[in-house]
Amino acid sequence: MKAYLRAMRWLFHIGRYMQLLSASFRRPEKGRVFRSLLIRELDAIGTQSIGIVALLSLFMGAVICLQTAHQIGGWIPVYTIGFTVRQTMILEFSPTLIPVILAGKVGSNIASQIGTMRVTEQIDALEIMGVNSASYLILPKIIAGLCIVPFLVILSMVMGVGAGAWVGVATGVSSLADFEYGMQVDFHVFDVIYALTKTVAFGFILTSVSAYHGYYAAGGALEVGRSSTRAVVWSVVIIMVTNLILTQMLLN
C-alpha cells in the first residue's frame, strides 16, 4: 500500500513536471521582453558562476595531476599524467560535477526566486494580467541553462587541464613536453562531443527541475526554503541517473 502510494506520488510529480514544461515552451508574449529576461538569466546563471567554476576546476586539475604522479611508480610512462588529467576533466569531472555544483548554486537560486514569487502571489499577478507565467519565468532560465552550461564546462576543461600542466611542471613531476604529449595521446574528438552532449542535458535538468520545485511551492517562507533544498537534491539525483543512462547509451 505504501509502495503504491509512493508510486502514485511519483507519477503525479512526473505528470505535473511534463505539464509545466509544455506550458513553458510556448511562444513568449513579447520578443523584446524575452530577450532582456534571457540576458539577465545568462548573467545570473553564467557570468556569476564563472568564478566558482574556474576555482574548482583549477584545484581539481592540479590535484589530479599530483595524485596521478604519486600513483605511477617508475615503470608507467610520465606522459600518463597529462593523459589522466585530460581524460578525467573532459570525461567526467567537468561535464558531470560542474553541473552538480551549478545545481547547488543556480538551482537553489531559481527555486527560491520562483518559490517566493509563488507564495507572495506574484505568479497569480502575472496570470491575472494574461501572462503565461510558466513561459515568462521558466523558459528564459532553461534556454540560458542550455546555452551557458556547456560553455562553463568547456571553460572548466581548459582550466583544469591548464592547471594540471602548470602544477606538473612547477613541482617537477612532469616536463611540459611529457604533459603535452600525454594530453594529445589517443585523443578523440568524440569524447568532447560526448561530454558536451551530456552537459546540455544536465543544463536542462538543473534549470527545469529547480523551476518546477519553486513553481509549485505552497505556503510561506519555510516552504520556499524547503522547495529550494528539494530542488538541489532532485536536480543532483536526476543528473546522476541521467549521467549513467547517457554514458551507457553514448559509449555503445
Binding site: T120, E121, Q122, D124, A125, E127, M129, G130
Partner: peptide, 20 residues
C-alpha cells in the same frame, strides 16, 4: 480564450503582489 478576458481585468491582491 481566457486571456482575452484576463486582459480586461485589473486586480489588487491582498498582499499587493508587486514584482520585487
Amino acid at each position: 480564450d481566457r486571456k482575452e478576458i484576463r486582459q480586461e481585468i485589473g486586480m489588487l491582491f491582498q498582499g499587493s503582489a508587486l514584482f520585487d
